[in-house]
Simulated scan of single mutants.
Amino acid sequence: MIGCLCIHGFTGEAKEVEPLTNFLKQKKGWLVYSPTLPGHGSKEGLRKANFKHWLYAAEVAAEELLKRCEKVYVIGFSMGGMIASYVAAKYPIHKLILLSCSAYYLNPKQIIQDMKGWIIEGWRGELENDILYKLYRRKIKDTPVKATVEFAKTVYKTRPILQKVKVPTLIIQGECDGLVPPKKSAEYLYEMISSTEKQLYYFKNSKHYIWLGEDRDDLLDIINHFLEN
Rank of each mutant, 00 (worst) to 15 (best):
Y86P: 02
K141Y: 11
M82Y: 00
K52F: 15
A58M: 00
L65F: 01
P168T: 10
K157I: 13
A152Y: 02
A84H: 04
K71Y: 00
L179M: 13
A88V: 00
L99C: 04
E175Q: 15
G45C: 04
K90L: 09
A49W: 05
K52P: 01
V180F: 01
C69Y: 00
G122M: 12
E70I: 01
K141M: 13
R138S: 14
Y73Q: 00
P160D: 09
Y56P: 04
E70A: 00
W54T: 15
E126L: 08
N107H: 10
A152V: 11
G174Y: 12
T148K: 14
I120V: 09
T154F: 00
G122A: 14
I112V: 12
Q163L: 07
A147T: 05
E128A: 11
K48N: 07
H53M: 06
G174C: 13
L162R: 02
M115I: 15
V145C: 10
I140S: 12
P108D: 10
K157H: 14
F151K: 07
G45A: 03
V145Y: 11
N50Q: 11
A49N: 07
R68C: 03
L65I: 00
K164H: 12
K134T: 11
G81W: 05
I75P: 01
L135S: 13
A49S: 15
S34H: 03
M115A: 14
V72S: 02
K146R: 10
W123I: 11
K48Y: 08
G45P: 08
E150S: 12
P38Y: 10
V167I: 12
R138M: 14
G178W: 06
R137Y: 15
H94E: 13
K166P: 02
E44Q: 06
H53P: 04
T158H: 12
V165L: 01
P168D: 07
L179Q: 13
S78R: 07
Q110R: 05
S34K: 00
E59S: 06
N107T: 01
E121H: 09
L170Q: 14
L99Y: 03
G125D: 12
C69T: 06
A89Y: 07
T36P: 11
I111W: 13
G122W: 13
Y105T: 03
P181V: 03
A62D: 03
K134S: 14
I119Q: 10
G41H: 00
A57K: 11
L170M: 13
L162Q: 04
T169Q: 02
L65G: 07
K71F: 00
A61D: 03
P144C: 03
F77W: 06
A57D: 12
N107Y: 04
G39Y: 09
V72K: 01
K166V: 12
N107S: 09
I161C: 02
V155R: 13
F151L: 14
E128W: 03
K166N: 14
V74W: 06
A62G: 06
L127P: 08
A103Y: 08
K48L: 10
K43Q: 07
V155F: 03
P182H: 10
R159K: 10
